[in-house]
Amino acid sequence: MSTFLALFRRQWAAYFFSPMAYVCLTVFLAVSGLSFVGVVMRSFQDNLVAGDLLFGSQFFWMMALVAMALITMHLFAEERRSGTLETLLTAPVTETQIVTAKFAAALLFFMLMVAPTTLYLPVLLALRAGIGSVEAAPLLTGYLGLLLVGAFYIALGVWVSSLTRNQVVAAIVSFALMYVLFYSEYITYFVRNPVLGAVLNSLSSIRHIMDFSRGIVDTRPIVLYLSGIFVCLFAAVKGLEARKGS
């Protein structure tokens, strides 16, 4: 456990020494804040449910996908490029500890990035009491969905980063995979096979997020994301093991 914590602290500190993290944090907060204000302004006209205020904007999700690709791209690619990965692999730590520590640090950074958005509505309601009421349950389940989707995509980014030494390639490939998975529901427009269509629908994160932000909790996406996290991290561990052996 102490080894894991040491690795985690190393990675966590690395985020705060990197200008990329601050750029990511700043741009994500600016875009999510802007999309929130935009949604609030049209809430009086449009038929929006509570979850739409925070999770109904495509800009928010697009920025979240970009941010997740950026915060995971360097995790292994940078270590491979600079040659520190070999040193790490020969140290008395297991591959599982390395992968999980990096994943945990990236996930925590993502949560830190998202945390200010929880203040948006309280700030708005505190500014002017009586402007309307907002139901809490869809917001809570919406954040549960955001956490699950975020954890899965970060695990995906960890795995992709473990495959290449080029950060830019890692970021582009991660973003492309995340984008396809997120909007896989729309691919069904071009698919005639009903089984493939059903699989694409069940993988579509936008569909899951819509459910979560309406206050619906379903065990199927939870199992999907937890198993997806397991597979991605397991693949990253096995990739490192193969590299260590060769």
């Binding site: 509570a50 139901e135 349950a137 869809p138 309406r214 206050g215 619906i216 065990t219 199927r220 999907l224």
Partner: peptide
């Protein structure tokens, strides 16, 4: 999980 699932709506509506 597709076959044995739990789904619940926690919203007031």
């Amino acid at each position: 999980s597709e076959r044995h699932f739990f789904r619940r709506d926690f919203s007031e509506a």
